[in-house]
């Protein structure tokens, strides 16, 4: 066996996985997107651009997704960063493991159960009842875009916390001392040293959350009361309710395309920010 043959053999399992799990389904989606809906639903082979021409019918879903995904990512980042910072920099090492586990534990529970808990917390008998007791009447939280944002931030927080935590934890603490020694006040040290050096973690976290948010459908369905409609929800309806596979495929393919383009642009931006190749994220 030549070295070349051996190399092929080594990458074969990964290649097969890639082919079966990614390329094949995507090819189906691509081919279906040029087809037509059968009279009772399903897919009829054809070659038409009609489905793509129909995309404006899901404009709101795309618009909502393109707004929610970046905003949800930003919100998760704003909450996750201080949390990760507290864990990585300020926490006594004896407590670190315990606190990290507490961050993960919700992840072990089904997102359905956790979202349902939020339905109770944000529902009339939850926080609004508490506010009413304080004299603030008629606060509506559940089934609003706010509830969806809360659910999303809550659901994806661990995915954001972990990469940032790792980046901050690996940060050489002597760099912080050096900064302080050179006359930087604590906030200046954070701004000029800690933050730039945690960029790889931030980049990874944002990427993970953003990609997942682009396809999110469960949390909006459960906490948005069906009134907050994303591409993910549009896809579920198209495949599981109206059985319009052709249009569903066109919507799905467009979403994937938008996702790829956004991620590519994002990677380039981050690469420009990136300074050390060996610091690039842990994915």
């Amino acid at each position: 066996m030549t070295r070349r043959e051996r190399n092929w053999l080594l990458v074969a399992p990964a290649g097969a996985w890639f082919l079966v799990m990614l390329v094949l389904p995507l090819s189906f989606v691509f081919v279906f997107s040029f087809g037509e809906r059968g009279p009772a639903g399903g897919y009829v082979p054809a070659f038409t651009l009609e489905q793509y021409a129909n995309l404006p019918a899901r404009w709101t879903a795309f618009k909502n997704t393109m707004v929610l995904a970046p905003l949800g990512t930003l919100a998760a980042l704003l909450i996750a960063y201080p949390l990760a910072y507290q864990l990585a920099v300020r926490t006594d090492p004896r407590w670190k493991t315990l606190l990290l586990v507490l961050v993960i534990v919700p992840f072990w529970t089904s997102i359905l159960i956790r979202s349902y808990a939020w339905i109770f917390i944000l529902g009339g008998q939850g926080i609004p009842a508490l506010l009413a007791a304080l004299g603030i009447e008629d606060v509506r939280l559940i089934y609003t875009p706010f509830a969806v944002t809360v659910g999303i931030v809550y659901g994806y927080l661990p995915l954001m916390v972990f990469p940032i935590y790792v980046a901050l934890d690996r940060l050489d603490k002597r760099l912080l001392e050096a900064s302080s020694d050179l006359g930087a006040r604590p906030f200046a040290t954070f701004w000029q040293v800690t933050l730039p050096l945690s960029v790889p973690g931030v980049a990874t976290g944002c990427m993970l959350v953003f990609i997942l948010l682009m396809g999110e459908f469960l949390i909006p369905a459960l906490l948005g009361g069906g009134k907050v409609f994303f591409v993910g929800n549009a896809l579920v309806d198209l495949f599981l309710q109206s059985r319009n596979w052709a249009f569903g495929s066109a919507v799905a393919f467009t979403l994937i395309l938008i996702m790829l383009v956004t991620v590519a642009i994002y990677m380039r931006l981050i690469a420009r920010l990136q300074v050390r190749r060996d610091d690039v994220a842990i994915m």
């Binding site: 002597r174 760099l175 050096a178 040293v193």
Partner: peptide, 14 residues
């Protein structure tokens, strides 16, 4: 009014 040269330097990599 004191500065330090750290062991293994602690230069800012970025």
């Amino acid at each position: 009014p004191v500065n330090m040269v750290f062991q293994s330097y602690a230069l800012f990599p970025h």
